[in-house]
Nucleic acid binder design. Structure first.
Length: 286
DNA sequence: GGTTCTCTGCCGC
DNA sequence: GCGGCAGAGAACC
């Protein structure tokens, strides 16, 4: 899901600008090569600059990001259908194989050949560590920390890990890995420390924007969902922001607990409101 | 490494 | 609400 874009089957949106954005999305999806900003704007009957703003306001991502995400989706689909890597490059509309390989790391998290083989090559080391909020499960790929889950039951956390990474090979962490867990636990106990470990988080372009904005919220302060939406330049995407917060794969490292409701309420928290409350109170007293 | 394209902040209508 | 510019940065060749 890249945008909360309206679907074709619905009644046509009353807002003609939304309709124009929708048409632009379809244009991007059906073109062999991503249409230029100027072409999209012309089709929408707006200036390039204004079209760009309207598009981003409605979808939360820029036309280019939308096109890139769509291209990535096409490449994934082609590879999943067992096409050769060369075919996938062609079908997804990449200009050259060099670009494709360059992009594939971000897009697939692995080389295209590995992805085609079912992603079995991804290995995630993980371990559980006790902390004052219960248990923390930390998972790490060769690139960085890919998941931090909080909970009370080791079995439930392991199940959650397997559910999130159904194709990965899950390997119990060794002694060396304990250090990583310790760092994460320290970050839970003293959230103001932050986590200086590399992260390996996958998400849509929109989710990455939100997550980046969350990491910019200073410890000890909070922001509202609406503020985050404005900071990423998508003031109307408040609900989508909340969705991206909920999809945060690395608790505490990306401080989604610092996002609260406009009315002063805490809002929700994937790992339970008591944990959100505890984290916030810890930060405010430092 | 130069050029083109994208993106955003700002202003004017 | 919309157009337009400037300037920075990214993408491209």
């Amino acid at each position: 899901m890249i945008v909360s874009a309206p679907h074709r089957s619905d009644a046509p949106p009353r807002d003609p600008r939304l309709a124009a954005v929708e048409r632009a999305c379809r244009l991007i999806e059906h073109a062999d090569e991503a249409p230029s900003l100027a072409a999209l704007a012309a089709a929408a009957g707006l200036s390039t600059w204004h079209f760009h703003r309207v598009f981003k306001g409605a979808t939360g991502v820029t036309p280019k990001e939308y096109a890139a995400a769509h291209r990535a989706r096409r490449a994934r689909a082609a590879l999943e259908n067992g096409r050769s890597v060369t075919d996938a490059i062609y079908e997804a509309g990449f200009a050259s194989s060099g670009r494709f390989y360059e992009a594939s790391d971000r897009m697939l998290g692995m080389t295209p050949t590995q992805y085609r083989a079912g992603g079995a090559a991804t290995e995630i080391r993980f371990a559980l560590g006790p902390c004052s909020l219960g248990l923390a499960l930390v998972g790490q790929t060769t690139r960085g920390v890919c998941t931090i889950l909080l909970g009370d039951s080791a079995a439930a956390l392991r199940a959650e890990l397997a559910r999130r990474f159904p194709r990965a090979r899950l390997v119990a962490g060794d002694r060396a890995f304990e250090a990583v867990v310790a760092r994460v636990v320290a970050c839970v106990e003293t959230p103001t420390l932050g986590l200086d470990l590399p992260l390996d988080v996958r998400g849509t372009a929109f989710q990455h924007r939100v997550w980046r904005a969350l990491r910019d919220i200073p410890a000890g302060t909070t922001a509202t969902y609406g503020e985050i939406a404005r900071r990423i330049g998508a003031p109307r995407a408040v609900r989508a922001v909340a969705g991206a917060c909920a999809a945060n794969p690395v608790a505490v490292a990306i401080p989604c607990h610092r996002v609260v409701r406009e009315d002063g309420g805490l809002g929700g928290y994937r790992w339970g409101l008591p944990r959100k409350r505890a984290l916030l109170s810890r930060e405010s007293h430092k």
